[in-house]
């Protein structure tokens, strides 16, 4: 399959994730969208790696997965600590900080 297919798929996944973060109000869903963006990037890294015939991109993917896991643990902990305080995961309820 040509490289373009993979890149177009990765771009579509990335865009879905990006619009999800921007449009949705539920923090868990926003967080899932961020994970989807990272996985779209992984897909494009692997495709480019195959295209160029070197392994740098594929090794990079491992590091991105590690970071995504660390981000997931910290992110969920933060969501829980907010939930304890306001009993909601909606961003619109996190409104104590404003002008």
């Amino acid at each position: 399959m040509p490289l373009n297919y993979y890149i177009v798929l990765a771009t579509i996944l990335f865009s879905i994730g990006m619009f999800g973060v921007i449009l949705r109000k539920n923090t868990i869903v926003m967080f899932m969208c961020i994970e989807m963006m990272l996985n779209a990037v992984n897909l494009s890294f692997v495709a480019f790696s195959k295209f160029h015939g070197n392994l740098e991109g594929q090794i990079g993917v491992f590091f991105i997965m590690v970071v995504a896991a660390a981000e997931a643990s910290v992110g969920l902990a933060i969501i829980i600590s907010v939930f304890r305080a306001i009993v909601s995961v909606e961003t619109s309820d996190s409104n104590e900080l404003k002008l």
């Binding site: 890149i7 990765a10 990335f14 994730g17 990006m18 973060v21 923090t27 926003m30 967080f31 961020i34 963006m37 990272l38 779209a40 990037v41 494009s44 890294f45 495709a47 480019f48 790696s49 295209f51 160029h52 740098e56 991109g57 990079g60 991105i64 981000e71 910290v74 992110g75 933060i78 969501i79 600590s81 907010v82 304890r84 305080a85 961003t91 996190s94 104590e96 900080l97």
Partner: peptide, 28 residues
Amino acid sequence: SSESALKYFLLGSFSSAVMLFGMSLLYG
């Protein structure tokens, strides 16, 4: 404090993902 952590986390990891996509294009 929790609220600020949540906001920073969501926008910070969003921006890292965006930057990462830029990196993958540069690699490509």
